[in-house]
Design a binder for these strands. Structure first.
Lengths: 182, 182
DNA sequence: GTGCACATGTAATGTGTTACATGATTAT
DNA sequence: ATAATCATGTAACACATTACATGTGCAC
């Protein structure tokens, strides 16, 4: 079975909190400055329909009175699929190209126990360090000959990767500290 | 006239260096660790066809002997369109959602005079500072109540933005220094 | 002369974007 | 009553991904 889109997983994850309508979900995307998704109804409603077809979500009881609203809630199969999505070990590609998707997954992990979060962070750390090494090697070998703009642009990538490494180290340190004081 | 895709502009920019074939361009994407684009022929060849249809590129003289290769070079209209693409002031959206596209533009700017680069960096700096303020405000207001994973994920965004601010400050400082010593 | 890398393409598919359409409910 | 907002949806379109198809030149 083919994979669902990131948007669909994001919707599925948001529905874990409380039954919501497509309009509610759109508002969430607007209000959140993560800005990973747009609030286009032409994306959200079809994605909800796909989730319905897979039986990962189901219509919840519509509220009496007020406007017509279609509320959705995840099914058991939906909860399972979402948990499996969260549980996937982050690949090199995930960390390199889809950083914000990984951060989305991390954000959804918070509710449960801290162990999966720690494992996820450690896996990310491994990939980040490999990536940083490669970037630095490429930078040393090739950028000196490049024009200024290209040098700066590449440096931005390297600095970004370094910031991610620092962040993950801080995150892991914070988890260790929390564990000790608990 | 609708905008071309980022991939098409990237191809157009690469062709400014030397006439190349679709295969050459693909190889460039594989070799470069910027990894913004994939090397799928199903993306590159159609993009080249679109550029041809717009007369932004034209077939260059094929090399005598050897394999069949279709070389392309930018036309005058293509060079103009590319220069205009580079010249667009980076919007808030560009900086927030399409950082790597902005870095791609910056990389292509290197060849000319340093003035456009400086203007570009200063515009980015403005947007980044606004963005960082908003992120920090949101973080202070909303993250304390969030679960651990979400806190960490949001912190990653904030740290990333801070790293970009530091990078742009460093880049501008470097340009000022270069100007003084010149 | 057979296999392999080179080089160009096409087709099916899925998805997001933009823009438009349609009704219901609340506010004035 | 009328306008504005809420809420859901659809249609056209462009683009990327994946997989497949095709032929050429070179190496052995």
């Amino acid at each position: 079975m083919a994979d669902e889109s990131t948007l669909a997983y994001a919707l599925l994850g948001l529905l874990h909190g409380a039954p919501q309508s497509g309009y509610d979900l759109r508002k969430t995307f607007v209000a959140t400055p993560m800005a990973l998704f747009s609030d286009s109804p032409g994306a959200i409603y079809p994605a909800l329909r796909r989730l319905l077809r897979r039986r990962w979500i189901a219509a919840a009881a519509p509220p009496r009175g007020g406007r017509r609203r279609r509320l959705f809630a995840p099914t058991e199969a939906g909860r399972k699929a979402f948990a499996e999505w969260l549980d996937r070990p982050p690949s090199r590609e995930d960390v390199m190209r889809d950083w914000d998707v990984s951060m989305l997954r991390l954000a959804f992990m918070g509710a449960g126990s801290p162990e999966p979060v720690r494992r996820f962070l450690e896996a990310i750390q491994v990939q980040l360090r490999l990536q940083l090494r490669e970037l630095e090697a490429f930078q040393a070998a090739h950028t000196p000959a490049m024009p200024l703009g290209a040098q700066l642009a590449f440096a931005s990538g390297v600095e970004g990767c370094r910031a991610q490494v620092r962040w993950v180290e801080g995150a892991l340190a914070r988890m260790r500290k929390q564990r000790r004081t608990r």
